[in-house]
Structures are given as C-alpha cells and as structure tokens.
Write a protein that binds this DNA or RNA. Sequence first.
DNA 1: TTGAAAGCGGTACCAA
DNA 2: TTGGTACCGCTTTCAA
Lengths: 336, 336
Amino acid sequence: MVSSSVPGTEPRKVTIHDVARSAGVSRQTVSRALNDKDEIDHSTKQRVLDAARALGYRPSRFARGLVRQDTTTIGLVIPDLLNPFFTEVAAAALEAARTRGWHVVVYDTADRAEEERGTLQVISSQVDAVVGYFSCPEDEVELYTRGMPVVLIGREHRTARFSSIRIDGEQGVHSAVAHLVARGHTRIGMLDHDGRAEPSVRREWFTAAAASHGVDTEMVVGADQSADGGGAALKRLLTAHPDVTAVFTFNDIIAIGALREARRLGRNVPQELAVIGFDGLQLGAVVEPPLTSVALDTRRLGALAIEQVARLLTGVDPLAADDLVVRAELRLAGSA
Amino acid sequence: MVSSSVPGTEPRKVTIHDVARSAGVSRQTVSRALNDKDEIDHSTKQRVLDAARALGYRPSRFARGLVRQDTTTIGLVIPDLLNPFFTEVAAAALEAARTRGWHVVVYDTADRAEEERGTLQVISSQVDAVVGYFSCPEDEVELYTRGMPVVLIGREHRTARFSSIRIDGEQGVHSAVAHLVARGHTRIGMLDHDGRAEPSVRREWFTAAAASHGVDTEMVVGADQSADGGGAALKRLLTAHPDVTAVFTFNDIIAIGALREARRLGRNVPQELAVIGFDGLQLGAVVEPPLTSVALDTRRLGALAIEQVARLLTGVDPLAADDLVVRAELRLAGSA
DNA sequence: TTGAAAGCGGTACCAA
DNA sequence: TTGGTACCGCTTTCAA
C-alpha cells in the first residue's frame, strides 16, 4: 500500500508574489490588504484576502522584520527551569518584556557549561540582547555576544558592554546567623552549592557572619542543586558533625530537601534543627514547617534585568551599578 | 552640568556595507570572512574581522534568516509559568526543541483571555508554529494562526491544521476513587478548577468514577489555581460538608494548598482526610505527607508536542490522535 | 581570491 | 485606488 503523501510535493513557501498573481494584483496591493491600509478598494481587499487564505499565505517574519526593524527579542538564559527560583525570575522577566512588546526566547542550559556554550553560539544570531546566568568565563560570553548588550544576573562583570544585577545577601545572611545565635545555636553548618571550583559568595557571607559572631565556620558540605541533593547533603553534614543544631543553605530548594531529610531522621524542626534557606521562594510557604529564608525579590530581579536591557538597547541612561542591586533580607517563618 | 550623551548621536545600525567600506573590500568578502568560508585570503579575513569588531558589527538576523531560511522558532504559550506543572512541560518542550536546534519563544498569558488574544496576535508574525494551552474559542486561535501549525495541549480541536495532545485521566481518576473507596471513604469531595464556564473534564472523570462506585458526587467547590486557592477551597468544602473524609483536586497545586489547610484545621492526613491531586508534580514529593496524585508524564507531554510540531512543519507523517495521548495514572504516596 | 549582480520577501515612496 | 521601483541587509552564483 502506497502512502498518499507524494514525495517532492513539499509545498514551496507561498510568498506575497503568489498571492498577488492569484488575486490579479501587484504585491503592494497585497501588502496593503494585509496590513489594513486605507488606500485600497474594499472589493479588491476582499479578493486579496480570499486569495491569501486559499493559498495559506503567511508573511515571512524575516522579510517583514528586515524592512520594519521594529521587533525586539531578548534571549533569556537560565541554568534550570525546574528550579522554582529561576522560574520566578523568568516569569518576572517575561512580564516585564511583555509590557514592552518584546519577545523572549528562553534557553535552559541544564547547568552545563557545554550547553551554555552552545546556547551562546546560537543565541548571538537570534536575539537583540541577552539576559541571564552564566557560569562560563566572561571572555567566552564576550566572544559570542559581540556587539550585543548583556545583563548578567548574580555575577560581576568586567566587560564594558555588560551589566550585572548584583545580589546582595550580606546583610540578610548576617541577620540569619544573628537570629540563629540569638536562639542559642552555636554549632551552625552550611549546605553550599556543589560543583563549582571556588566556594560560593553566599558561603563567604555565611563565613563572615558566623565569624563575626564567634561561631565556627568549618562545617560546610556541598549539595546538589535539588531537594534530593539537599537531603543527602544534610545527612552527610550530620554524620560528620552530629552536634550541629542549625543549617544555612545555598538556596531554598536545598533547604527544602534538608527539611524533608530532617523529618526522616526524626529531627524536629526547628527545635532540634533550625533551617534557613536563601531565595525566599513562594514554595517555601507550602512546606512543613514553612521555610525561614533570606529572601530575594525575584519580581524585582527579573524586572530590573529587563529594564537595564531596555536602557542598554536604546543607549540612554543605563542604570549604574548602585541601582542594579537586589538586596536579600531575612524572612522569618517556622523553620528557624 | 551637561550630560555627556549627545542627543541625535544614536548610533545607526552598522551594516555589512560599513564593514566592507572600512576594510576596503566588498560586502561579499565580509560575508565570507564572517562565515568562515575558504575562498578568502587569510590577511584579508583578519582585516575584515578587525574592522567588524572595531565597528561593533552584528549581522542582521532578519536579513540572514531571509536568505538562509533555516531557523525554526516555536511559540510556547502557557497560562502560568509559576505553576510547576506548566514549568515542567515547558522544560520538556525546551529540551526537545534544543535537540532539533529550534528556538522557543515563551509567552505567559497569566491565564487571562485578554492576554491570550494579545499573544496570539503578536505570535503569528514571530514564530513558525505554536504549541500550548488556550482557553479562548478555537476560531479565535484559528483566526490568528492562519497557515501555521498549532498543537493544543489538553484540549480537543476541530480545525484540520490543528493537533491536540489529549490528556487521558479517566483510568487514573477511576483508580484514585477506587483507592479511596477501598480505604473506606464514602464522602468524597472535589476541589475543581474555578473560573471556567463549564465544569472541567477532570471533574467529569471524577463524577463518572464516583458514580460507578455508588459515591455521592455533589460535593464540588471551585478553587483558584494556586496553593492559597486550594486551601481556601478546602475550607469552604469542609464548612459545607463537614463529613467529607477525602478530596480529589483538579491539580497538585490545589492539593498542596489543601494539605496545608488541613494541617491548620488540625485534620490529620491521610487518617482524617485523604487527599489526591492530579499532575504528579515533582513538588509533590517534598510536601508532608508526600502527595498521592494521578500523575502525568510531563516530559513526554512536552516532547510529544514538539515531536508533532516537527511533523506538521515538514508535512510528513503527522502522528494520529491515538498516538497523541498522555495517560495519567495513580501514583500512591502518603496523602491517601 | 575577489567582486558584481541577482535574489530572499516584504514595505515605502512615488507616479500614474 | 493602483502599480513601478527602490531598498531593507545579507548570501549565493558566476565572472573576473
């Protein structure tokens, strides 16, 4: 039995020319009909529209973009869309972009440097500016984004063309440690980000805050960026240091995994183990107990990034570093 | 003090022509240099590249797309990126798209018909195909997506050009109700989707399943699509029907809100109140108790949608309705 | 190895 | 109200 689809019959793209011929008019007239211009006879317009429909015509976005030069597309690069933190940022960025009539192409790099490179490579010819998280060296980002505004989130920049949204958690983490100390905790551990060469900035904040309270800062273990990772890390931490009574985590997802693990281990939270996360996810409100966290305003973060992109694109009045900061602050809930 | 930025100095877009002139070659030579062609002298190439860099030149993606016709961009339309279910689907779709070298523009319609229309309007001239969730009438979707493949998720279609990924939860919901009945529950309520004119399909599955077990099916209240909404709905349900001992919910987010509310009300889960959600979110594993749910394979859902788009775009061998189904099945955990 | 010319598929400006 | 023509910025083909 032969398939009814005939090879080689692949319908070549229908162009404005085809419509024009089919309707017996010129291309310009077709253009007028499709763009709702006034200078066209009603019946002509109708005829053109019918022809277009009949042929299944759709204007080429490239041709149109070429002549109109009015569409802006932003590339949003994110390590892991399944981590609610990045989802919240993405949602905020999408909304900020929509109010400007911009389009956002989203790339999930799965937190892999290799994917990051691939994305960068491909992105440069598809968008007008880039916003997002990158872990690869700045000169690589620089290399692939030649001539394009770039806004980095949560990371310093050197390149002039780049901007950074700085995440300032120093105060917040200090408050968190202070809170724990005030509650009588002296053995405070941390579940840090795993897999990076150097310790995270958040860890540095933690270390500094702990030291300033005369608290030991040696009890740090790395955790995978997931709830499971957080659980496993807590287990390791408690095995190595059974006397730990409080933990600060790199982010909320890890903290949530830690909460679950604590429950499994029969450790009461917050009585026997206090947990403080970082991010302030909405998700933290639905776990038990609700998660105490050093919270970021993710809406502001996303909106700020898009705002800066807007300024960089128009070249007017870009925000200075001092305005490109999102401060985290301690938000108390049930877990500490 | 006068600002140093001079109005009217806005740098006109640098084109290939500018680079050519600056390097003292023709445009084609510039093109060759930039696209790593062989037929070019090494020193010439270097000179062109330098000129391009100096001018901050970036090729127009429109001009390039126009002539190369090789980039595919999909529009992914989602009601609410903050709902983890849609995030999971989106992540799956992004990954499936990436393996094909496609770009995905994401639009969050905030579950509002108005935004849906705006998105549809704008999308048609920006993408090659559309995948996603729509709540507005099919003829509106049809109107704006003229000539473009469309894959609807979780919704039937009539239009020939459209495809649907069907979500089949009939079996799964039946199993869920059977499970509850086997556990001795006879008063089973439902927290349904709110804000739609007609009752949801999931409610119909529930009603049918309950009826087949001789269980009353009248105890349904609407819930907002959020944890808070789920909590509020549970409260209303229990107020109206204090004898309810089990609830089935429209989705997991609502169920998670219900779990939290149950805790606040002092109702033990699952002993005094059994809860079963729908979606099978990864998130369900981190709440307490872990959520029993009628689970969907979101990875498959997203991948299937992209797969079908691929077939529609090439016109070869689109999947038939029977293959465009994702079945949900009961996944037991702690909450029921 | 390089350049001239012809498109890619539209829209804008003009004259008819 | 219409159509001719130029042009948007780039790549491809073909000569030089």
